[in-house]
Amino acid sequence: MNLTLQVWRQAGPDVPGSFATYEATDISADASFLEMLDLVNERLVLDGDEPIEFSHDCREGICGSCGVMINGVPHGPQRGTATCQLHMRTFADGDEIVIEPWRASGFPIVKDLVVDRSPFDEIIQAGGYVTVDTGQAQDANLTQIPKETADLAMDAAACIGCGACVAACPNGAAQLFTSAKLAHLNLLPQGDAERYERTESMVGVMESYFGSCTNMGECETACPKEISIDFIAMMNKDYVKAKFRNRRSA
């Protein structure tokens, strides 16, 4: 396959960037999208140019490192698929592909297609855990968890923290990421004790970095793990309860 790429190049966070055009020639349809970029980069390096920087690591769709806008869509055209698992057979010979970094004020650009997603770690620090020290646990089977509950918690816990939800959102909101972690922990008996403190605290940090949710639903469509926006509804409900409850207990 032969493709024309329009790639966002930006040397650093404080300098203006622009699109550069590259021809990606002789690409195998079985290559992954990132392998296509590898090949373009290998040729750039041999020509003495700096390669296109992009985040990636496991290339199995689980580490959450990768993610670029492909023709305006986070992770590209295939539903439920991270950029690293997208294969070139999805494209047609001769296609022009526009490749950009996540565009969200909560994720400043570091270089080229690489963005800073550290606010996600700060949201987790605000309560995305169960307070249990190593060694305090009782036998695991003493707490029974219905299969449906465990399965639903797992659906939420499948989030890979890639940030596609934020990139897809017209408001740059991080509700899907935050609610997925909240649902994972709040649904389980282990997370119940801290449910309302956790909800209020994580939402607070989220709002300090990201925009507001207006129920557009773009996040669910973009999510490579197809996490449901039902979890956002669950979070909103818990948040309202938390506001009353935490005020009463304050």
């Binding site: 646990a137 009782q138 695991a140 968890i145 299969k147 399965d151 389980l188």
Partner: peptide
Amino acid sequence: DQAAAQGVPFAREYGG
């Protein structure tokens, strides 16, 4: 035990 207490959503049977 530790992982279950942290909320790791291990697979469960119908009885929990």
